[in-house]
Design a protein around this nucleic acid. Sequence first.
DNA 1: TTGACATATTCCTATATGGGAATGTAATGT
DNA 2: ACATTACATTCCCATATAGGAATATGTCAA
Lengths: 109, 109
Amino acid sequence: MARAATTSDAFNAVAEPRRREILSFLAGREHAVGEIVLSLGLEQPSVSKHLRVLLEVGLVEVRRDGRRMLYRVNPEAIRPLHEWTRTFERLWKHQLLQVKERAEGKRSV
Amino acid sequence: MARAATTSDAFNAVAEPRRREILSFLAGREHAVGEIVLSLGLEQPSVSKHLRVLLEVGLVEVRRDGRRMLYRVNPEAIRPLHEWTRTFERLWKHQLLQVKERAEGKRSV
DNA sequence: TTGACATATTCCTATATGGGAATGTAATGT
DNA sequence: ACATTACATTCCCATATAGGAATATGTCAA
């Protein structure tokens, strides 16, 4: 079996750095494809293809404005990633605490 | 160009569902490879290969215990993912607020 | 040393890319 | 109708899988 499709879920979709850049760029407000092209310096077809992937997994939404297509982030689709990583939060906080205690010459737990 | 290597960064490494399962399983405490195999019901070589990827991107660490290899999560490596997703937090909170206000019959912003 | 146990690696293959180039399609202005 | 603008899609290809099977490596026990 090959690797899972980039369109299989949000985790696979955001594995690609350019798609993360696009999402970050869209975090401010909705933007047309051409604006993304100028902003990130990618080829237009490349941007369109990345947007397609993001659209398929629900990470972005679109609306037409004349000849332009305005894309915006759908933040709800990012939440599952946030929630999953959050399950490890207590671990790194604990780790940081240990480092701190060690630095202060105390006994670690 | 093909897709980036799974070992290129944590984002690519956790795109694979089984690797996320392994990390979650290791979140409690360190475990031997055989325990992961039993727990997740995967083939041993498969688990070893996933662990190699996780190890290369720093998501797990190992120590030997006799013939067993005990793997544990390195939570620090998950933080960047958490931080990146967190930059969208205000967006979904805002979105939820709008939904709530609409449900209460108020004007949306 | 030999055998058993625990894990890692190698070989194989079908599959899904991401970028570049070229082309298709939709909407607007005249 | 036609040219132009703005995107989307298709074709091609080098590359990196993930799983299965087989094998190699490392450690302990007798």
